[in-house]
Nucleic acid binder design. Structure first.
Lengths: 100, 100
DNA sequence: TGAAGGTGTAACCTATTAGGTTGCTATTGC
DNA sequence: GCAATAGCAACCTAATAGGTTACACCTTCA
């Protein structure tokens, strides 16, 4: 697993998008989870789980956060993609037969 | 929706990861969908659907393709993320109350 | 001290979806 | 004709996003 991309781009475990949301957005706007959930149109339970890194950032949630904050939806999708990538690189790879 | 990022990074609709897989990987290795499905350990039906852009690239599939081709899993996750981003930017945004 | 609001978490339910199996039809090459 | 491939449909399952409700535990404030 030591290839060029790893050498050029050493990876530490990225923050879960929910933690970024909590620290950057909620604290930045001084919003409670309860109030943010109301404005986003999602349940408080779900936003709590997301903000604590227990559930991934779905496309729907990414769209809502982007719409409410004025940020691009790509930010949240890519945060999740980076997080997923790190996980995928650090879990066992499924059994396959190599191509070529 | 006309912001700096759109100006700097004009977006055309990205190819579905499955089409990339079909054109670049299958044709490159001269593999049939049937044979590739066998090697990846997924059903032929599912790989057909993926290769024709009917189903997204799941994390599991991304891991399998990466393992079989020696490419990084990030490639496939990011292809899907870019595709998702484009779709999210070109569909109606859900109803939310702005922060701040 | 007690009420109010915020937080975390658990149990339960529903809708969606990834993915499998089977079977049919069409196409291509031997 | 026949074998292999491809696309697609119907159907089934396991997993998951997300909701509702409820409970326990803080703070803060009157």
């Amino acid at each position: 697993m030591t290839n060029v991309s790893n050498v050029l781009k050493p990876r530490f475990k990225p923050s879960h998008p929910g933690l970024v949301f909590k620290r950057q957005v909620l604290e930045g706007y001084e919003l409670s989870i309860t109030e943010a959930a109301r404005r986003l149109g999602v349940s408080r339970k779900h936003l709590t789980n997301f903000s604590n890194g227990h559930v991934p950032c779905s496309l729907d949630l990414a769209q809502r956060i982007a719409a409410a904050t004025g940020s691009g939806v790509a930010v949240w999708i890519n945060l999740q993609a980076n997080y997923d990538t790190w996980l995928a690189e650090h879990t066992d790879t499924p059994d396959v037969v190599a191509f070529g």
